[in-house]
Design a protein around this nucleic acid. Structure first.
Lengths: 219, 219
DNA sequence: TAGATTGTTAATCGATTAACAATC
DNA sequence: TAGATTGTTAATCGATTAACAATC
């Protein structure tokens, strides 16, 4: 099997296509339709599809089913990747119940915490045996910041090679481990700053209607 | 006041610096120290700081206090931006209680839902009056996908200009509104794919030690 | 045939990294 | 003075967009 390495940005868009294709009844779909439905550039969609799928047909588009399969295969979504959650606070609970992962071939199979263990939350002492027995590759880290680095190291000792990090700690891990930081606070800050930027731009435009050197970034 | 427009990537890093500087006791800090602590390139840190702060001093670094202030000012973190949450399910609850926003100058001041209203969760019917009275600019959208577009439109009618969108719907909004998509499922997919990529690379390396054309992306 | 749509090459835009001069 | 550190310019890398040829 030919393994393609591509950009993170592409990897972010492909699940969006998968989710969209899931809702499509028609047997064929054009890149134009996809791009309009998802507010993406149409050349960008065509390029993305070209990278992962068989050819489309002019005037007809792509076979919805084949395209769907091709993207899922490319993204490794057929493996049914198993993930565990460590830290069963509010955020951990929310992710555990989040419905959007399964259509992308990801199952959150178990949660762990140091206390409040129940039927479906195991004590963190069982992490090691559970992960090894079940060959878990992915861990979702939703523990308090103070525990982040130590818990990450624990996960790695259990054979986990991909960590989705919701803590604000910048983890130090060996090079074979992949970290995906999900810094919610930073993300909301980006929204605030971007919004303020645009507001300033707009206010400036309003106060100076004849000046056309100021335009919003998107047009 | 000079308003600088810069890249989204920069906007993501600045809150990370703010969080880090919060923990620093020393009165001066060098870009080298910051870059090592946060696993970032040292030139990148220096460039970032140059964009938003006063000069550093060779051999000494930057005044921790001034740097902290400069970044916060640049990012608009002194405004105490007020945000509301719409959709008080598990994810909405988790974000409502999330502790990391306040150090970045963001307050989640109110939650709304269609049911289960309590002291601190208002009925969505009160959205309009609340937002206008309190001049809310930011909305966090954690409703079910089926309600996403309609709810977003409601928010915009209430004067909200920045939406943090946790639904899988690609919202259609007027150009003065900023959307920050937080697609959790896509994000976890990126982790899975990136990890599988690296694993395949490593496995290949192991099975063919003399071949040096394959190296992991980071080195 | 005409036109919608694909697919590809080249151009542009944006972000990161490398190299090195400046300076406390 | 020497060396740590800053700051800047140029080079590189990566992603998006524009232009246009190919084709059903």
């Amino acid at each position: 099997m030919i393994q393609n390495y591509n950009s993170k940005k592409l990897y972010e868009r492909l699940p969006i296509y998968v989710h969209f294709l899931n809702s499509i009844q028609e047997s064929n779909i054009s890149s134009t339709t996809i791009s309009k439905s998802l507010n993406l550039g149409e050349v960008q969609v065509r390029k993305d599809l070209a990278l992962v799928s068989g050819k489309g047909r002019p005037k007809i588009g792509y076979s919805t089913k084949n395209l769907f399969k091709a993207i899922k295969k490319y993204m490794g979504m057929n493996h049914a990747s198993k993930a565990i959650i460590v830290g069963f606070g509010k955020l951990g609970k929310a992710l555990y119940d989040y419905a959007g992962f399964s259509e992308l071939g990801i199952d959150i199979v178990q949660a762990f915490d140091i206390s409040n263990t129940t039927d479906f939350v195991k004590d963190i002492k069982e992490l090691d045996s559970y992960c090894l027995e079940n060959e878990i590759l992915f861990g979702i880290l939703t523990v308090p910041s103070t525990e982040a680095q130590a818990t990450a190291e624990k996960l790695i000792r259990c054979g986990i090679v991909g960590i989705w990090n919701f803590t604000s700690v910048r983890l130090n891990v060996p090079s074979h481990v992949v970290i995906q930081n999900e810094n919610l606070a930073a993300s909301l800050s980006v929204l605030v700053k971007s919004t303020l930027d645009k507001k300033v731009g707009n206010d400036y435009e309003k106060s100076n209607e004849t000046n056309d050197s100021y335009t919003s970034k998107k047009h």
